[in-house]
Design a protein around this nucleic acid. Structure first.
Lengths: 329, 329
DNA sequence: ACAGGTGATGTTTACGTAAACATTCCTCGG
DNA sequence: CCGAGGAATGTTTACGTAAACATCACCTGT
């Protein structure tokens, strides 16, 4: 900076002012400084800048590897929103989703060049991890129910699941089976609960849920079971990948979709429109979730004490060809 | 740091030594310092640290949003490898893959707190973007052919494509059709070229390639065309998503896979094992690509001048049920 | 014409750390 | 018993920037 100042014939402070787009610099001076910068290929040192300013213009994102598509798309939206606000995004991958690993990520975070943190992670992993968070660092959590302790942004899982079940019931199905996600997933729990509640509202007793682990393979295994039940004409799968496996199992067992069995997924992954048949599913607006996460942390950075609470992002039913009225209806 | 020093009854420098795990501090002193740190909830200030040390312990990753699965998995592996080496990863999303946008990302990078850069991007977008890269910052490029100018790590696209085509020829198919990726993709080009070359080696004239845009939807449209050709018994799709769409089109047109038509994909996405039928495909080792990228930048950071060159990561054919000998063979 | 302002620029200082150098104290060989 | 050498710790300084304050020239209204 000193070199630039010397070359431009001004003080270092003036260089700083130009560099930060400060008003109150003559157009003439500004041009000279910019020329000098170009000439010397000057780049502001971000470490010094951060030290002086006390902020890094960087958001940290903690996530359990980039395993699920939802997380990835949320992350993508976060990165885009952050960039729009002039913030960079630093990734804090957690290899194995154990309490220890998560704690580790949180404490590494303490020394990390980050102004705020967005956590994309299930609640139960979050417990007790909070202790090592540097005080005063805003946190927003996605994909969690910790609304009492944190600011939470999440997809309206319950609403989506309800829509899925209603859609099938409205088509005339006697009941709706559920291909559930893993028990330790909060999202899976909420989808299952909403499925159960919606059936109960309709005066129906839910059939036993079949459990998968989100993978297409597990959906296939579950599908083999469901294909044996002639009374099973409608299935709500907790995500699209499992629905894919389910479709394969039903096909292999000679149960046609949607003529004999209707299937609804959850997520609306891009491929689901090309499944056999194209999958009716619940579209999640990950972009909006990511945007709200960034908005959330930035708000709490500007205001002193943000109140905990949950923001729900609505879902949308995308009707394709995997659903139809039950046989003989 | 001063407060910690005071509380522990030592100098700030000793705190620094403990904080950096420096040898030559008495166990007794070390304990006192650590206690004081805990007591005061001290965290080293990474901005000051970076300023003093002249490095950020951070890698920047430039990528055209998180659109393709391959990029994501590479990114994931990069983040994991970087974490293992004590480096953080900062994301530099490029919203639209135009030359301007890429240049923008590169110049923002100049002021970014980053010691090295990994670019996951097609070559043609890279041209001319390099000018604004701060000198002395190591760069490694994935997914590119710029081996003459940069250190490049890439999957052995040609080898994979060759294996795919050979597999089909070995099964007895008279020729192999190609469902190609978009023209402006370097990966797509190389897969197409290898397909053509392999056929030529076998003394065959390649049928006209059908072009898609990587999406399942485009694969479906292409599939509708291919289904009309009774002489088309074997298709090599440039990625699994297009293969998925292709499978749907063939199915809808009553062409059974693999009895009438064999299909090979590329990527081995997790879902491909659950397609109808499960897809024979070329497995890419993204984790290895990511690992090598990190290794590459770290090496060039330690050594003065790295030589440009390309490292190829081998692929592996995963044989599933979408391939079989041609009808009447 | 002159006091009082206003806008442009310069000077000083502190941000928190770690390298370089300085000091202290202890051990060990002769 | 003394001095050399080394281990442990302390002191000084600089990293590059931007906030706070200081200065200076010039304009405006009476």
């Amino acid at each position: 900076m000193g070199d630039v100042a010397r070359l431009a014939g001004v003080s270092a402070q003036t260089v700083s002012r130009v560099s930060n787009g400060f008003a109150g610099v003559t157009e003439e001076t500004r041009r000279q400084v910019l020329d000098a910068m170009r000439e010397l290929d000057y780049r502001p040192n971000s470490a010094a800048r951060a030290l002086r300013r006390g902020e890094f213009r960087t958001l940290g994102v903690i996530t359990f590897s980039l395993s699920t598509l939802g997380n990835i798309r949320t992350l993508d939206a976060i990165a885009a929103s952050a960039a729009r606000e002039g913030y960079a995004v630093t990734l804090l991958p957690v290899a194995v989703p154990t309490q220890d690993e998560v704690n580790g990520a949180f404490s590494r975070l303490g020394e990390l060049a980050v102004d705020a943190v967005i956590v994309i992670m299930e609640t139960h992993l979050l417990d007790a991890a909070t202790v090592s968070l540097p005080p005063g660092i805003p946190v927003v959590v996605a994909d969690s129910d910790a609304g009492d302790r944190y600011t939470v942004v999440d997809t309206d899982q319950a609403g989506g699941a309800r829509d899925a079940v209603r859609h099938l019931l409205d088509l005339g199905h006697g009941t709706v089976w559920h291909l559930a996600g893993p028990e330790d997933s909060f999202a899976a729990q909420r989808r299952a609960n909403a499925w159960r509640a919606t059936l109960a509202e309709a005066g129906l007793v839910p059939p036993p849920p079949v459990r998968g682990d989100w993978s297409a393979e597990s959906g296939y295994r579950a599908g083999l079971l469901l294909a044996e039940r002639p009374d099973c004409t409608a299935v709500f799968a907790a995500n699209d990948q499992m629905a894919l496996g389910l479709l394969r199992a039903l096909h292999e067992r000679g149960r046609t979709v949607p003529d004999e069995v209707s299937v609804v997924g959850f997520d609306d992954i891009p491929e689901s429109a090309s499944f056999l048949p194209p999958l009716t599913t619940i579209h999640q607006d990950f972009a909006e979730v990511g945007r709200l996460c960034v908005e959330g942390v930035l708000t709490s950075m500007r205001r002193p004490t943000p109140e905990p609470g949950t923001t729900l992002v609505p879902t949308r039913l995308v009707s394709r060809r995997s659903t139809a009225p039950p046989p003989g209806h």
